[in-house]
Design a protein around this nucleic acid. Structure first.
Length: 269
DNA sequence: TGTCAATGCTAAG
DNA sequence: TTAGCCTTGACAA
């Protein structure tokens, strides 16, 4: 489930598992054999995330991974079993091993190339160096809908389809509202909420956005079994009643992504 | 067993 | 705007 919180969690886990010790690296699938050979036998020096991009520093350079839609790390304790299926990269240390499957990107970068990548990414609510004013400078001048701007990694990085839908709902903002029509106050609230929601996501390993007072139990309704693993207001709840006002949640395809919102709670004149 | 959609993004057209 | 990447889980048959 790779939105930004997953990547930050991964950076943390890589550090815990492999920092400071020699790591065995291989590409059983073969598509990253050259890179793996360069990493092999050297220690992990550092790991960090910027938005949905994962960086792991080795003496040979920065391993850069982007999971895309279905990329995934699987973890276990050594000894690692014989590879099954398409494993792009396997890292094995003393305490743990991990298998990377299906990433959009798995490559080795020079420090300069890594810097260039950071430069084209917008501020990440999960990074202490993030500057929300930089994003606001773009948002406040854009005719694009805020729902599109939040998904644009050049504007804000790390927000995916779930956080986008949920943060707009939590602030009752119509997803079709243009960036330039947002008030500074609305933007500040969105940003602060992303910082808090995504930090919770890193800790919990899942996305929960429903305030306690809106949980079904608190509303006098039976508890809900949520299919995707977190408690959310609108994401993938099309046709179901809004947890706050009861109107049916709507969905619409916007720039090839499914947008979800409540027409009652998020309705700007 | 098969089909589809998915938390993302890029390159081709 | 669309196809493609390459994987998984949910659901239909």
């Amino acid at each position: 489930m790779p939105e930004g919180h997953v990547i930050h969690r991964l950076a943390r886990r890589l550090t815990e598992a492999f920092a400071g010790e020699p790591v065995a690296a291989a590409s059983p699938q073969g598509r990253f054999s050259e890179g793996a050979a360069l990493l092999h036998g050297r220690p992990l020096l550092a790991a960090e995330a910027h938005g949905k991009h994962l960086f792991a520093g080795f003496p040979a350079g920065w391993l850069h991974v982007h999971l895309g839609l279905y990329g995934k790390f699987a973890w276990g304790e050594p000894p690692a079993p014989a590879p099954v299926g398409q494993i792009r990269l396997r890292l094995v240390g003393e305490k743990a091993y991990c298998d990377l499957r299906g990433p959009t990107v798995c490559e080795l970068l020079t420090p300069g190339e890594k810097d260039a990548l950071h430069a084209r990414l917008g501020p990440d609510p999960l990074r202490p160096d993030a500057d929300p004013d930089r994003a606001w400078a773009t948002v406040s001048r854009s005719r694009q809908p805020i729902s599109a701007l939040l998904m644009d990694q050049k504007v804000v990085s790390g927000v995916g389809n779930i956080y986008r839908a949920e943060v707009l709902f939590r602030h009752r903002i119509d997803p079709r509202k243009a960036g330039k029509d947002l008030t500074p106050r609305e933007w500040k609230a969105i940003w602060a909420d992303l910082v808090s929601l995504m930090a919770d996501g890193v800790e919990a390993g899942r996305i929960d956005t429903v305030r306690p007072e809106h949980m079904p139990e608190a509303m006098g309704r039976p508890p809900r079994v949520d299919a995707h693993g977190g408690e959310v207001y609108v994401y993938r709840r099309a046709g179901l009643p809004c947890l706050v006002c009861g109107l049916a949640v709507r969905t619409e395809s916007l720039q090839a992504r499914n947008l979800f919102w409540c027409p009652g709670c998020q309705n700007s004149p």
